[in-house]
Amino acid sequence: MSIRLGINPLTWTNDDLPSLGGDTPLETCLTEGREAGFSGFELGQKFPRTPDALSKVLGDHDLSLVSGWYSSRLLERSPEEEIEAIKDHLQLLKQCGAKAMVFCEVSRCIHGDQSHPVSQRPTLSDADWVRLTEGLNVVGDYLKAQGVHMAYHHHLGTVVESQADVERLMDNTRDSVGLLLDFGHLVGAGGDPLAIATRYASRIQHVHCKDMRFPVLDEWRNRDKSFLDGVLDGLFTVPGDGNIDFLPTLQHLRENGYQGWLVVEAEQDPKVADPLTYARRGYRNLHALAEQAGFTIDK
């Protein structure tokens, strides 16, 4: 099975906390990401949002578009309204060659609010779950027909955070609703990436390889902190620099035919964690892990 290695611009500049790397030009992100060895980037707020401009800026650095985050509000609007809202983003991804859309329900979310600890994250009633999963089915079917798979991003501080949440979402949606497996977000919520990969391997459309420093995780939980406080404290890092064991899950994905991107997503304070240093480290470590898991790595 062949995969490609990509990176998210959060290493350089943070969309949720703009004070982190806010003055870093997109050119620096792309130049250093390519220098580190990566073949593609996910979108961030500094990227152009028209297909021609985006293709040019990525092409100038010999980079591909991996995917791009979409903030869904299916708990606040109808599936038909969501489909209408998603069209520009969908066309951007399609025309620039991305095959998966990072899709997250952000209604009621608190991950961007530094004043709210993750323990106060929203939970759903049974009626909410029905509304969300039925809406995801409709939107997932639409995206699949357009040639771009939904990759649902379970995320700390949102309505789908825990392993139980992921299982409920997957068990109550059709195959058109794919999953983004994010190691850091799942472990941070007390979940087991291998268990999720074992149960839903055929539906995993995208993978974020976010590592965590477990001593910081323990302190973060004990002090009941916000998601953004965790970022500032150094909770997240690149693969192989923290304490998550990636290899068993990557091996399982390879054995079950995963083909696509493995993405380094490790938001840190760039003044503390030099972006190029950590991009190089992330590429080197993830490349070695992917090879150990038996993947062929395409450029």
Rank of each mutant, 00 (worst) to 15 (best):
A189T: 01
W220M: 08
E255G: 08
P248G: 02
D192K: 01
D233F: 00
T249A: 04
R221G: 13
N222C: 04
L253P: 07
L247W: 11
S202F: 13
L247I: 05
F236N: 12
L194E: 06
F227I: 07
D241R: 12
D192Q: 02
I204S: 08
D211N: 07
D233L: 05
D245S: 05
V231Y: 05
Y200C: 13
F236G: 09
L253G: 13
G257V: 08
L250E: 01
P239N: 12
T237A: 11
G190W: 12
N256D: 15
Q259C: 10
R221H: 14
T198N: 15
L247M: 11
V238R: 05
P248C: 04
F236A: 05
L262C: 02
T237I: 08
A266F: 03
Y200A: 09
L235Y: 00
A266S: 09
G190N: 07
D218C: 05
I244V: 03
P215F: 07
Q251S: 06
D241P: 14
D241A: 15
L228I: 06
Q259K: 15
A266T: 04
I204T: 05
V231Q: 07
P193H: 10
N256L: 15
N256G: 15
A195V: 04
G260M: 01
E265P: 04
Y258Q: 08
A189V: 03
F236Y: 06
V238N: 10
L194W: 00
I244E: 02
F236R: 06
D245E: 13
E267R: 11
T237S: 13
H252V: 03
D218T: 03
G191P: 15
K225F: 14
R213G: 08
N256K: 14
Y258P: 01
R221L: 09
K210H: 13
F236L: 07
V207Y: 00
H206C: 14
G240D: 13
W220K: 14
V238W: 06
D241H: 04
